[in-house]
Computed example of a mutant assay.
Amino acid sequence: MRKFTCVPVVFTLAAVMLTAACASSQGTAATTTGSAGRAAATGNGAQPSQAGRLSVWKSRQLGPVVTDGAGFTLYRFDKDTAKPPASNCAGDCAAAWPPVLADGAKAGRGVDPGLLGSVKRADGTRQLTLAGWPLYRYAQDTAPRQTRGQGVGGTWFSAAPDGTKAKAQAQEAPSEPKDLPALSTVDDKERGTIVRDGKGRTLYRFTKDTAWPMKSNCRGGCLEKWKPAGLVDKKNIKGIDPKLLSPYTRSDGTKQLSIDCWPLYWYTGDEKPGDANGQGVNGTWFTVRPNGKLAK
């Protein structure tokens, strides 16, 4: 009978134990993915968002970006129009991109009150506009100042204070922590101990991957945002059992680091070392514990 494993087959007790561990990890991931799917299937659509007092914060990647009173990024949709103002996002679209209500909206620091207006939606509510463009929140932004909606579908963009699209800024690369091991752990306030690479970047797992057999299902456009983690010198790691680490050969022949048979990635949406903006994206991306399990 043919067997699959993530490391060369060696008929030792250690090899048998590693094989069992890989099979166990896959079972855990399948359960997690199934739970996420059920939650998505039964979840309610997002409700319209209250604007509060708008303000501006300067993103290292995008420059000045408009946020609502709770600090969440506001977006504009290329399929809308500003002259005259009109929203073309309804139904499922509005569930993913909740319209920002005009009622109670105020211009805070950095926002020109003369650019604020409103447009009547099909359901009778009035949506806030900026320079004529209807404004939205993104349901996948789970914390203030996240910009996970930037560039989604090539039509959604963070709103700059003048109503134009916030664009990527030329910037110096953020300084990397010095003297970090090639792979180590860090204590995260929300998720506990998680794994990072030698540049201080948080590493992630993709629940659509498999560990038995080991396989990455992040290909094509997925790789534009999620970069495979490179191999490391096992003598230069801290806080992780080197026996859990192994190389995975991708379809293009490149090597990717895996932990407990799960391929590892870093996220281009993390602006600086220590960021974990990829946590929970699409319900399939999560930070990783030193034992290879998902950190939620």
Rank of each mutant, 00 (worst) to 15 (best):
F77N: 14
K120G: 01
V100E: 11
A94V: 08
L264D: 06
Q127F: 03
P98F: 12
A166Q: 11
P84H: 00
K234M: 06
M214P: 09
G200N: 08
Y138E: 02
K235H: 11
G91I: 04
K208S: 14
G108I: 10
M1W: 07
K227Y: 01
C93L: 10
A107T: 03
A30N: 10
R76E: 00
K3M: 13
Q146S: 09
T254V: 13
F4H: 14
Q279E: 15
F286N: 02
G280Q: 11
F286E: 03
S175R: 13
F4R: 10
C218A: 11
L115E: 06
D179F: 04
A51P: 10
T31M: 12
Q146Y: 06
P98T: 10
Q61M: 09
R126W: 02
F11Y: 15
K296G: 05
A159Q: 01
A14D: 11
G45K: 12
Y75T: 02
R219K: 08
K178Q: 13
T164G: 13
P134S: 12
D92I: 13
L130C: 01
P99D: 06
S59C: 09
A30L: 11
L101N: 02
L13S: 15
G34L: 14
P177E: 09
T287N: 11
A95Y: 07
A30F: 11
V111G: 04
A295Y: 02
A41K: 07
E176Q: 15
S35R: 15
R145W: 09
V232E: 14
E176H: 07
V281E: 12
S246P: 01
P161W: 00
L244I: 06
L54D: 02
A30P: 03
P134W: 09
F157W: 15
P242C: 11
W226C: 10
P247N: 07
A229V: 06
A39I: 12
L245E: 03
T193K: 14
L135R: 04
D270C: 08
T31P: 01
P263K: 08
V9M: 13
A51I: 07
R60D: 09
G292L: 01
D179R: 08
G43I: 12
L115V: 10
R289M: 09
S49F: 01
F72Q: 01
G108E: 05
Y75E: 07
P113Y: 11
D179E: 07
R148A: 04
A30S: 11
K83Y: 13
D275V: 04
R250Y: 05
R205D: 00
A20D: 12
P113E: 05
T129G: 04
N44R: 15
C222L: 05
C89E: 03
A295H: 05
M1G: 13
N236W: 04
R60I: 07
A276F: 14
L54E: 02
G27M: 09
G198T: 03
K189T: 12
A229K: 01
T81N: 13
R109D: 11
D270K: 02
Q127G: 04
Y267G: 06
I240D: 02
K243R: 15
M17R: 14
R191I: 00
G220Y: 04
K178M: 04
G45L: 13
C89V: 08
Y265H: 08
T125W: 02
D252A: 10
D233A: 15
Q169G: 06
E172L: 15
G45W: 08
A170K: 14
T249S: 14
T19D: 10
D112N: 10
W266I: 07
G269N: 06
